[in-house]
Design a protein around this nucleic acid. Structure first.
Length: 346
DNA sequence: AACAATGATTCAGA
DNA sequence: TCTGAATCATTGTT
């Protein structure tokens, strides 16, 4: 305030004609006769604004302050804001309103369903249980699988939350910074509160698009985790020796027609403590692999044929036929090794 | 580490 | 729907 008189007279050419108070037209409304005085007044202020960059930093600061305290500043500021609002902002105004993002909603729903974004416990284990049910395994070591799944899920969850928090914090910090900056600048250039608000919403949109990327990558991580959990090939366990022997015994004793019936599969499954589909898989693989390389399986075939023969002999020696194969070998099946299971060793 | 064995999946065809 | 064939991914062996 105290610098005002000095400043007002610093440029002799554009001075305010030395009047101490507000000009008449500013107090009494528009008076046609005062047009020249007003023009001069505004011209003076504009001139001061234009020359502000020529000053040293201290001088400029002082000038800025003086301008800020000038009696016409609010009026000029409002007019400039109005003009700016009408021109620049109206151009962008049309495209600002956007519909709620469907993609974002999908991501949110999925994260909630997988228990990543929801309450601490529950969703993850439910998903794990569903995955386990879908995998259709025997379920003996499911608890270990579950804890592994849950551990990895909670790891994802933790990363997601810390990242989200970081983004939110960064967003807030940046917003406050920009708001302060704009408020500060609004003292020297026309920035309306509305425009600040608009800027804030732009910042929020930008940050929420970053958040969406975070959500996207989190979803991907969960999907990968789930697919790994569901993919039975990744947790393949060899059958135990006994189960393999039972299956081989059946295979080689039915070499001419190695296609167990549904009942036979069920019985084998029970004996081997595996599922019927595992029995089917095993026979499918065995048939194709045997057919591909009979020579390689020769020895194995002979061994099982011999064993079956011994078993049959001992059984018949006891006068029982309970263990005889339900579908004996016949001509027309797979090429056979030296021994046929339904033939007795001489 | 390289390789073989093995259980599971996918897909075309009957 | 079942099977053969090709293939994948893991386990076991050398």
């Amino acid at each position: 305030m105290d610098e005002q008189p000095r400043m007002m007279h610093s440029h002799a050419g554009v001075g305010m004609a030395g009047h101490p108070g507000l000009p008449q037209h500013m107090q009494e409304g528009t008076g046609g006769a005062d047009g020249d005085g007003r023009k001069q007044d505004i011209g003076d202020i504009l001139q001061q604004i234009m020359t502000i960059t020529d000053q040293s930093l201290d001088e400029a600061q002082a000038r800025k302050h003086a301008l800020n305290c000038h009696r016409m500043k609010p009026a000029l500021f409002n007019v400039l804001c109005e003009i700016k609002e009408k021109t620049v902002l109206s151009i962008r105004g049309a495209q600002e309103e956007e519909p709620p993002d469907a993609q974002l909603m999908r991501l949110d729903n999925m994260l909630l369903a997988e228990g990543v974004s929801g309450p601490e416990k529950g969703g993850g284990s439910a998903a794990a249980a569903a995955a386990a049910a879908a995998s259709g395994g025997a379920g003996a070591d499911n608890s270990a699988e579950h804890s592994d799944y849950r551990a990895k899920l909670s790891q994802i969850r933790q990363i997601y939350h810390t990242e989200l928090e970081k983004y939110e914090q960064a967003c807030n910090e940046f917003t406050t910074h920009v708001m302060n900056l704009l408020r500060e600048q609004s003292r020297t250039r026309p920035i309306s509160p509305k425009e600040i608000e608009r800027m804030v919403s732009i910042i929020h949109r930008k940050f929420s698009s970053i958040q969406m990327q975070l959500k996207q990558s989190t979803c991907e991580a969960v999907m990968i985790l789930r697919s790994r959990f569901l993919d039975a090939r990744r947790k393949r366990r060899n059958f135990n020796k006994q189960a393999t022997e039972i299956l081989n015994e059946y295979f080689y004793s039915h070499l001419s027609n190695p296609y167990p019936s549904e009942e036979a599969k069920e019985e084998l499954a029970k004996k081997c403590s595996i599922t019927v589909s595992q029995v089917s898989n095993w026979f499918g693989n065995k048939r194709i692999r045997y057919k591909k390389n009979i020579g390689k399986f020769q020895e194995e075939a002979n061994m099982y044929a011999a064993r079956t023969a011994v078993n049959a002999a001992s059984v018949s020696a006891h006068g029982s036929q309970a263990n005889s194969p339900s579908t004996p070998n016949s001509a027309g099946g797979y090429p056979s090794p030296c021994y046929q299971s339904d033939r007795r060793i001489q």
